[in-house]
Every structure is written in structure tokens, then in C-alpha cells.
Nucleic acid binder design. Sequence first.
DNA 1: CCTGTTATTGACATTACGTCAATAGACACG
DNA 2: CGTGTCTATTGACGTAATGTCAATAACAGG
Lengths: 211, 211
Amino acid sequence: MSGDRGPRRRRRPEEAERAILAAARAFLEERPFREMTVEGVMVRTGLSRPAFYAYFRDRYDLITRLLEGIGGLLFALDWRWLSGGADGGEAREVLVDALRAGSQTFVDYGPVLRAIADAAGYDARVEEVYRYGLIERLVVAVGSRISRDVEAGISPGELDPEQTARALVLMTERYLLDAFGRPERRPSRRERAVVFGTLEEIWVRTLYGRA
Amino acid sequence: MSGDRGPRRRRRPEEAERAILAAARAFLEERPFREMTVEGVMVRTGLSRPAFYAYFRDRYDLITRLLEGIGGLLFALDWRWLSGGADGGEAREVLVDALRAGSQTFVDYGPVLRAIADAAGYDARVEEVYRYGLIERLVVAVGSRISRDVEAGISPGELDPEQTARALVLMTERYLLDAFGRPERRPSRRERAVVFGTLEEIWVRTLYGRA
DNA sequence: CCTGTTATTGACATTACGTCAATAGACACG
DNA sequence: CGTGTCTATTGACGTAATGTCAATAACAGG
């Protein structure tokens, strides 16, 4: 008897919505976004496919909500960057700290973040949220920090603060996705250390010169 | 009279194939890959949609062929990197040279390269060709160059050659796509100079220290 | 035990895909 | 010039996934 889903069950909307989000996350831990279909997510919830549309406009809306859940963690990086004072030694420490936190977020939520990044290529709305709500936001934060450090004489004046910020942020995003964004491949502690060390080296050498 | 495509016309296979590739390129100069449908490409050729499948397996096969057309240009960067001697001053010049050539390729073929990068998120075969046939190839080339420079004492020993290469290559790819990959936005000479300067600054400071 | 609300779903319309047998250009040959 | 052959081309079909909606049935409150 295939398709026997048992008797109907009625949940509170909020509960059903959470179940769908959880199912999507679980799905993306196993398979990439390109294979994620509405049906494929909904079978994991015990609900029918049309039920999905009672809670989400489409799968891109779903992805956007997943991003909201993680977004908060990355927003925390904003003020870490901005809060640091502009005196020599501290600037580097603040940077390393923020990089470590960012890397950890990618270790924890790699596949989901990867899915969001992929979905940005599929849908204009997701691209909007991802690019302007996350990436661009980080670029602005990092850029203003670089700008301050340049004015304070800690960082070299040849750097264009905003462009340098954009290049470094994009590097960090793609490099971390490359390292931690594949489903079914938990990185070892050693791998994580090498990845983090590489990012630190490039950021520090670019902004503050040799260690 | 919609749909009137006039009398059938018969072309030589090679000619039809070139027409399709050209139509795809033209399409991607105007609209992103996510909107590219087989029908949308074929109307520009005067052929019917099914004709497409006589020449390409699907639109990802088409994208792969487009990449082949540009790939040669980027392969040239391989040996630029490797051919350079390992004496101090020259290493930097070779790097700057290769960066400039790479940037120019993105200026010339930005939207197509962007489409290929997007398509890599859609299809496993395209991802394979893009990641392993292009990105990874550049990573290896750059990595072995860095390795040589580290051994020669030109670059700092803290760098992990392969990982540093990967981070820098990914940065360059995404940053150039960001700058030159949007359809309908030809970059000004000034913009190009800023983008190129930023890349140069990060690469040089990372690998060879302050200018 | 009813009854109204609403979460849930079966069934439908749509779009893009990939295939294939049938059609009709163009060239070769008489 | 016919005329026949080859094959580029296409109409028509089956499939997969999407998004919608009227009908259904689970649960809460009386």
C-alpha cells in the first residue's frame, strides 16, 4: 500500500510551519538545493504537497525564511567589527575574532547557507535578500571599519575601503562555502584550523601587513 | 499571424550549431541564466525548439560548450603563472600580468561566465566542468607557484600554498563576477581600474608583502 | 453530541522539458 | 531538368514539477 499516510492529522499552523522548516533543513543536510522539490520536503512532514502552499509562497520563500533564522548570527558580526576601537593591536584581534565566529557559523550551518547561496542564482527575490540583506550589509560594515583603520594609519592608504571589503567578504563567503557547504562531509578539526588560518592570513596581511 | 516562422530553411549542422551558440550568448547579454529557456534561445535562431535537441543534450550541455569557447583564454593564465622565474621582482610582475589578463577576460565575457557559474548550481555536470575543469585547475597552478615562491623565500612560510591559492582564486572569481557579470551594465574604464587595483593589492600584499 | 472554523487535500491547469515518427529541403545523379 | 535519397526539421506526445481552489474532515467550544 503506497501513499498510505494514515488518517489526517491536524496541527496548529505554527507547528506545521516549524515542521516544514525542519524538514527542509534535514533535506539540505543530505542533498543539494537543486534536488529539493516541494514534494521532497513535504513527505518528511507527513503532510501533502499542497499543504506547503498554505505556509510558504514557494520554495524560495522557504529558503528566505531559513536565511532569517541564521541571519541573526551573522548580523552579530556587524557590530563586532564596528565596536572595536581603532588602536593598533586591538584591530587585529577584533578581526580574528569576527573571522572565527563567521567560520564557526559556516561549520554549523554550511549546507543551509550553501543552499541559500545556490538559490540566489535561481530566484531574483532570494538574490535580493542574500545579496543586499546579508553580503552587502557585511561589505558596508567591513568597509567602514577599513575606512577608519586607513584614516588611523593602521591600514595602508592604497586600499579602496569599500572595494577591498567587497573582495574580502566575497572571498570569505565562497571559500567557507567551498570548505563547509557540501552535504555529508563534516570537516575535521584539522581542516577547520587550516581554513581558518588561511583566511586570517589573507585578511591580516592585506589590512595590517605582516604579523 | 503569430508563430509564422516562414518556410523551413535547412542549414548545415555546423552552421546551425554556431547559430544556437550565438543566440545563447546574445540571450545572456540581456537576461540572466535563470530566465534562459530552450524556447527562448531557439526563437532567436529561427529554428524550432525540438531542433535544439539535435545539437545539444540540454541547456547545461549548451552552457558547457560556451565554457569551452572561453576556457582556452583562461587556460592561458596557467602557464603565465608557471612560466615566470622565481626571482623577486619578476614574480610580482607575472602576477599582475596574469591578474590583468584574467580581469580582461571577465570584462569581455562577464555575462557568459556568470551564466556558467550560475548553471554550476543547477546541474551536477556543469558544476563538475566548472569546478574541476576551471577553478580547480587554476587553484593547482597558482598553488604550485605559491609553493615555489615560499621555498624561494619570496613569500612567507606561514601560508598554506594550496589553501591560499584556493581562497585567492575564489575571491577573484566571485569579485570579478560581481563587478562584470551583470547583464546590461558595461563597466566604465574607471570602475575597471578600481576593481583591478583592489585585486592586485590583495594578491600582492598577501603573497609578497607591502609594495 | 452538535456545529462552525479552518487545516488539509484531491483534482486541475500550466509550463518547460525531452523524444520520436513523420515531413520536406537540398544535393547528387541520370 | 526531373527525380530519388538523405537528413535537418518539426508537430505531437508523455512527463515532471509547479501553484490554485473547491471540497473535505479534524478539532474546539458550546
